[in-house]
Write a protein that binds this DNA or RNA. Sequence first.
DNA 1: CCAATGCTTCGATTACCATCGAAGTATGAA
DNA 2: TTCATACTTCGATGGTAATCGAAGCATTGG
Lengths: 205, 205
Amino acid sequence: MLTALMSGHALTATELAQEAGITVQTASSHLAKLSDGGLLALRKQGRHRYFSLSNEDVAQVLEGLMGLAARAGHLRVRTGPREPALRNARVCYDHLAGDQGVRLYEAMVARKLLAVKDKNAILTKPGAAFIGEFGIELEPLERARRPLCRLCLDWSARRTHLAGGLGAAFLERFYALKWARREADSRVVTFSRRGEKDFEALIAV
Amino acid sequence: MLTALMSGHALTATELAQEAGITVQTASSHLAKLSDGGLLALRKQGRHRYFSLSNEDVAQVLEGLMGLAARAGHLRVRTGPREPALRNARVCYDHLAGDQGVRLYEAMVARKLLAVKDKNAILTKPGAAFIGEFGIELEPLERARRPLCRLCLDWSARRTHLAGGLGAAFLERFYALKWARREADSRVVTFSRRGEKDFEALIAV
DNA sequence: CCAATGCTTCGATTACCATCGAAGTATGAA
DNA sequence: TTCATACTTCGATGGTAATCGAAGCATTGG
């Protein structure tokens, strides 16, 4: 919820609950605590209650915390109880989104397999070697008209993951290796126990 | 423990446990988590393990967090389980120390009843009015040789509270009003239920 | 090699917090 | 008035984390 408020916009309790994937009751209790703690400002407007970060300092500290988390590779956003599977791993068009998608992307950036500049990603030389070792053929992807690497924003509009031809290739490879499969009638991607372990090893630094 | 490490010195697990008022076992588990999280750096030296903040950014973020907490008046340090009463309120020479002592001091600073400059505190005009209303006679204190306002550091050497003639006068007044009493054979100061409430009201902004 | 010191790991207990259904309050619309 | 919407409060539940005693590991000094 705090991350959502980093935009600077004021949001209602219901919107924030949706953002966080929790019920309004739960959100209400947390928002009350955050307000009491002086982190949030409250503006009543009719039957709506708009919450926003109380000042620039709060945003600054959050920015700092997120920076520390990102550097340590611990940006795994703690998922709410609502639809946890969906938040963990899901299909976004034809590539992997959700926590696992974000982790894959961030690990690749951290290991300099991807070079990100101006919201565009480029596969580095070590990156090309990496995907080759993982069993993805680079050539046909490069020949295709589709861009190799694109960045995709999560619904929360805060978390980036890898899309484009390479993103799709990764997911296909996960399917082929039986690391994961797609649930019927759902966007949920389920990792097998074994697959999860191998996936962890793949993205480990 | 993080606060203790803000000094920039590296400290051992045992020292940090003492600082936090917890056992070494508990400290060890927390230190392991903080290290895993990338907040702490570890230097082994013989049978000692020295922990320190891993980099300047961590210190920066902590500083920011403490700033937010201080501004909101929520600097009440979460006390460990060991000797909680002692940490909450105790006698330091002849004035109030522990969380309650710190809160009193910080509330007075926040309300500009005390002006702090260069680690010296001065009672402001509103401050003089405040203590008068509270039933402390200023004149005899000012005539005494003892300094009116002195700042005293907690054993943790991180938390400031009010000492000097005024600090002593406050504690005396708390005794006189039956807000608090000193436990026998102990430095612990116990607030009555009523006294706690009135104390809260006194320091409320 | 043994004892002492510094620290970690294990296991069990306890306290606490998040969570959400249900019910209550407040505002606005019909 | 009555209903609908937005939100909070209450209460019960389950899960999780802090805590510490006991035991284990590692280093040093004798």
